[in-house]
């Protein structure tokens, strides 16, 4: 394939194009665990963003009085409520571990293929394990919400 640019040599420094390799479209790459976790990190971040409404609602209800607090408890005790709080717990703990992975990378460690994989599996499995642990404790101390 012939090169299509630069069509005309441009003089201005700001518009000068240097020939450099282009990256293929995202779909060209083989799907990897690190890629999936990258998206999950973003999805859990956004979910937690809206999940803070739950925390705010619960605190405001506790400050408002018994009636308001009973409403929150009715919600968190319902099937849908439990599902949402369970999802929030997982999102939080997964995002925590996955975020720590980001911080390790930020410090310049863990870039070897094997290390990347290990960190990613660790975040995935660790997040699920911690979520189950928290819920087992929750049911043991209080019989659920």
């Amino acid at each position: 394939m012939g090169r299509t640019w630069p069509r005309k040599p441009l003089k201005s420094l700001m518009t000068t194009r240097i020939e450099r390799p282009l990256s293929p479209h995202l779909q060209t790459y083989r799907w990897t665990l690190t890629m999936a976790l990258s998206i999950i990190h973003r999805a859990t971040g956004v979910a937690l963003y809206f999940g803070t409404l739950l925390l705010a609602w619960w605190l405001i209800a506790a400050a408002s009085g018994p009636g308001a607090y009973a409403n929150v408890q009715a919600f968190t005790g319902s099937f849908i409520g439990r599902l949402i709080v369970f999802g929030y717990t997982w999102a939080l703990l997964h995002h925590l571990l996955s975020g720590l992975r980001h911080l390790v990378w930020d410090l310049g460690y863990g870039f070897k293929a094997s290390e990347r994989e290990a960190l990613s599996w660790g975040a995935l499995i660790g997040g699920i394990a911690l979520t189950l642990l928290v819920w087992i404790v929750a049911y043991t101390v209080g019989g659920g919400r």
Binding site: A61, A62, G65, P66, A68, Y69, A70, L92, L93, L96, G99, L100, V134, V137, A138, V141, G142, G143, G144, R145
Partner: peptide, 22 residues
Amino acid sequence: ALLIAPVVVIVLMLIGRNQAGA
């Protein structure tokens, strides 16, 4: 990250309590 563990413990402490206890 540092605060998550204490916050989770606080939430667990509140399970099963009514408004006055919470």
